[in-house]
Simulated assay, not measured.
Amino acid sequence: MVIVPGTAFVELALTAGRHAGSPVVEELVLEAPLLLAERVVVQLQVTVGEPDDDGRREVAVYSRPEAADEDGGRVVTCHARGWLALQATPLVPFPVVWPPADARPATVDTLYTRLADTGYEYGPMFQGLRAAWHAGEDIYTEVALPEDAGDDGFAVHPALFDAALHGGLIDKDAGSTADLPFSWSGVRLGSGGGSRVRVRISPAEGSALRVDVTDESGALVVSVAKLAVRPVDPTQLQGARGGGQRSLFQLEWTPISVGSGAPVRVALVGDVGGAGEPFTDLDALQRTIADGAPAPDAVVVAVGTPAATDDVALAGRAATTEMLALLQWWLASERFAGVRLVVVTRDGVAVGGGSPDLVLAPVWGLVRSA
């Protein structure tokens, strides 16, 4: 699967922001991958909104196939969405001495072979890492485009920009899950340029990375205050082919084995109909278990009590808050380790319906199965 690198979307947002007078990508979240197929032309569109009181503008990147499908339509997909801003966080000084005096060389000769075994199969344009060093928690690298590659009018070439991230993969274990950029924060362009750059990759908040790129004279090319990555399974990308589901996230029904047919003890919490032992709330169920009763095999909880308001946004926020509180409480309770949680939503759907069999329609999610 040939995926357009996330750096291409960032470069598009940076260029649009520069033209609109908001040159910093304050945040850009990648919502869906853009997969390329042979002899299929894709059209791109970048939208920039009006500035708010702080000068921030919404930005989004969309695509659609140039050719219409059998029904005469063309599916439009949003690949990235975020905010442009006027100001960015202060730069961190880049070492004057190159490579840094305390840096230890790292082996990069077999890097792209090892990454191919992990799932990254970079083409010649993207195999830009030339040298690397460790210095404490920082990784320094030299990155270059092939000699026959031009800048093609980019503010920073996406292939060069992408290769600047590869230093963060040097210590990646063979056979581990492939990671893809997910969220970019505090991205700014500098005055430097060229096809050969120096890179520093440093730890940022949590598991995120900070990336600073300069040219060989030390002038800033591009800086990323925080880059967050997420593991991705190649099967998650299959839906992005053709006109199917484009998002990395999708709803799936997972078959559950019923086992040997042994009786299952079900606890019904709140206003839930069906076969099972009823409880007024989760605290009541927990007290019963504390008094010596065995934990049930499954707990069924109804979420989404009808709100006394016609404000859809307010009602949705209330239901989401209720769901979050339930999951936090459940995960913090050791008494329900190994117990399956079944969440029943209520959107005009009868639950129970007077039938002796438990009706779950629709089911939102299953959490913490044994």
Rank of each mutant, 00 (worst) to 15 (best):
A106G: 00
A37K: 04
A293P: 04
S195N: 15
L180R: 09
K226M: 12
T288K: 13
V199E: 11
A149S: 10
T7P: 07
T305C: 03
L180T: 08
D212I: 02
Q328Y: 00
R317W: 01
E137M: 06
A149W: 02
L220R: 10
G150M: 02
V300D: 08
L14Q: 09
T288V: 07
L115R: 14
P263R: 04
A37C: 01
A332L: 01
V301N: 04
G194S: 07
S202F: 02
A88N: 02
T214V: 15
P203F: 07
E142F: 03
A319L: 01
V25Q: 04
L12T: 06
P33W: 07
A60S: 12
S202A: 15
R18D: 10
L209H: 13
T107C: 03
F279D: 12
V108E: 08
L331C: 05
R317Y: 11
A332T: 02
D357V: 10
V301Y: 06
G338W: 00
T345R: 04
Q43D: 15
S369N: 07
D71W: 04
L360V: 15
L360P: 01
R18G: 05
F336M: 07
V339I: 02
V339G: 12
G304T: 04
D357S: 11
R196V: 09
D151V: 10
V187M: 02
E38R: 08
H19A: 12
D138S: 08
G194N: 14
V42T: 15
A85S: 10
G49P: 06
P33R: 12
F94R: 04
T235I: 03
A204L: 09
D179Y: 08
A135R: 14
G244H: 01
A228V: 15
R210W: 11
R265P: 08
G21Y: 11
P146W: 00
A32P: 03
A315R: 13
G292M: 12
L84E: 05
A60D: 09
V48T: 09
V187F: 06
V143M: 00
R130Q: 14
P23R: 02
H79K: 02
V299S: 14
V24E: 07
R246A: 15
R188F: 03
L326C: 07
P234Q: 02
R188T: 15
F94P: 09
L237W: 09
V143F: 12
A8W: 14
R340C: 13
A164G: 14
S195P: 15
D297N: 07
R246G: 10
L84D: 11
S176N: 13
R210C: 05
A361R: 05
G190Y: 05
V351T: 14
V42M: 12
Q286W: 09
H134A: 10
D215P: 01
R198P: 06
A313F: 00
Y62T: 06
A284W: 10
R287T: 13
P100E: 04
A85D: 10
E252G: 13
V342Q: 01
A318M: 07
V299L: 01
L84Y: 06
G338Q: 00
R198A: 15
D71S: 15
L341Y: 00
Q238V: 14
Y62M: 11
S185A: 11
A267P: 14
